[in-house]
């Protein structure tokens, strides 16, 4: 039987994850504020790369468009408008921050490990179940050899048609869930954003 363990994808994930972690540490340790923003770009770009690895092209491109193309650009723009320091700012990090950072990191890792372990227990996460037929949510390994053959054939047929990228990554899926299943939360969030926008205008007005 062929394995569902996708070696290249795992290697790629490892490389991206290491890059993200290193960059994330540099964001908080560097003493140059513009460099910190640039390391943040690396973190966000890495997250976008992981989205691509998970076949969520739409989310990945939106990640680049919104976070890298707009939010960090605005961070940098704000820095440049106010003081644009070249070189290091010594008050950006200090020793007491390390203690806080370690405590925060420990708590965060505990919560994350607990939530992952709690939600998956000893289930096997299955590639087929996530990328192809959601109805066949039983693990691939549980199937008999014949059933495995059929699943593989179906997958190959879908792949040959070149139409189905799996239900996760397609733009239609994203838009369907936003504008049908989660319409009300979406509208609430837009109202919130509008309120924030109006608030910003009110604060910025001179009279």
């Amino acid at each position: 039987m062929e394995t569902t363990f996708d070696l290249p994808a795992n290697i790629a994930f490892g490389v991206i994850a290491v890059a993200i972690i290193v960059a994330a540490i540099r964001v908080v340790t560097t003493r140059n504020i513009v460099h910190a923003a640039l390391w943040l770009v690396v973190v966000l770009g890495g997250v976008g790369a992981i989205y691509i690895l998970l076949q969520a092209e739409f989310v990945a491109v939106v990640q680049y468009l919104v976070y890298i193309g707009a939010i960090v650009v605005l961070f940098l723009f704000g820095i440049m408008l106010t003081r644009a320091p070249l070189g290091e700012m010594l008050d950006l990090t200090n020793r007491t921050m390390r203690v806080g950072a370690i405590i925060t990191a420990v708590i965060l890792v505990t919560i994350m490990v607990f939530s992952v372990v709690d939600s998956f227990r000893d289930e096997e996460v299955d590639f087929i179940a996530y990328s192809g037929d959601v109805a066949a949510a039983q693990t691939f390994a549980d199937l008999s050899a014949e059933e495995q053959e059929t699943v593989l054939d179906e997958v190959a047929a879908i792949g040959a048609e070149g139409t189905d990228l799996g239900p996760v990554g397609r733009t239609e899926t994203v838009s369907d869930s936003i504008f049908r299943d989660y319409l009300i939360p979406f509208e609430v969030i837009s109202a919130l954003l509008l309120a924030a926008l109006i608030g910003a205008i009110v604060i910025a007005r001179r009279d």
Partner: peptide, 11 residues
């Protein structure tokens, strides 16, 4: 197996 999408050319 044939993956559905093959961003890393493993297929």
């Amino acid at each position: 197996m044939t993956p559905l999408v093959d961003p890393l050319l493993s297929g």
